[in-house]
Nucleic acid binder design. Structure first.
Lengths: 172, 172
DNA sequence: GTAAACATGTAACAGGTTACATGATTGT
DNA sequence: ACAATCATGTAACCTGTTACATGTTTAC
């Protein structure tokens, strides 16, 4: 958990050098469902990363554009993170927290909550499925792991939808 | 997401009045897997909640103990949160973020990562199953929703373990 | 010319973690 | 007497969000 944004930036820079602006777009597209980041955060962290010598400016373009690339130290740090440290599992779920307190409201309101969840998760499931079909999964290494992450999303949303449906059924 | 700790405290106080110390224990036991909170956070928030009139001190005991109870405003706020606002789904997953970057390390190291995940999730699954069997699910309303939350945990961990096993298989 | 997109930076605030600080009461 | 547990409070720090601030370049 600590320093994760930092490693996400390093990870994105392994493929190609990029500016803060480019990285912002990558966060908003490919990483939006795994590690969102704001513009503010990205620019601040890039400066810190450059100061720490994990990335460097390899070109400057129009409008003050700074193109960053990984340094050897940066790549080493990314590998260290991937191989020597443990990922922190997510512990907080507002969705689940609410379930604990559903006894406080009427049964039909609780039911509406669970139905709402099922619907929300069904929608996410469909959106991901569409995205999956729109992506060309024929690249190399990159897309092997991309597909594995996608599969997680598909299974996760299916599981949650089925659970919410089951839960709604339980209280009927 | 904003103000969630606040509502978790209100939710716990619906069942019975309690001190900060009592609530800390509840967080560390029943809510540990849904909404962890630290001692520091709990005491600070309780003071804010009391100041806002959502809870009140109903008794003072030894060692400066303050027993808090929900006020009508507090109960109304909890209901409002449950029925009128939308839960924020979790978006960040360090576990999944790492998957995106596994192309940067050797295949056997990537495999070790995925095997590690499968093991971690299998352990959590077993721990939850044991907890499930140790709990007496014969109370009222309370345990209907407790069981629903437990079922989520069981399905979630099973899904993640199966996915990690499948993923490891994919790259072999 | 002007709107959209490109491009970066910073300040204020909210939420969470760790650590420090202090002391009373209970059980052995 | 001593340790464990009960009980609360606060300061420093880190991460993340929202909003403000500023300007350039490109396309129409």
């Amino acid at each position: 958990m600590p320093m994760t944004l930092r490693h996400a930036l390093l990870g994105l820079l392994t493929e190609r050098s990029a500016s803060g602006y480019d990285l912002l777009k990558l966060f908003n597209t490919s990483l939006a469902n795994v590690w969102p980041a704001t513009q503010s955060q990205i620019y601040t962290e890039l400066n810190r990363l450059a100061e720490a010598g994990l990335i460097t400016v390899v070109a400057e373009g129009p409008r003050g554009r700074k193109q960053y690339a990984l340094t050897d130290e940066g790549r080493a740090e990314l590998r260290h993170w991937l191989t020597e440290t443990e990922p922190q599992p997510v512990r907080r779920s507002e969705i689940l927290l609410r379930v604990f307190f559903l006894g406080e409201i009427d049964r039909d309101q609780a039911l509406a909550y669970l139905d709402g969840l099922a619907e929300m998760m069904g929608k996410e499931e469909n959106a991901l499925r569409e995205l999956d079909e729109a992506i060309d999964w024929d690249d190399g290494n990159l897309s092997v792991y991309g597909r594995i992450a996608m599969e997680y999303g598909l299974r996760f949303n299916a599981m949650r939808r089925e659970w919410a449906e089951w839960a709604a059924d339980q209280i009927k």
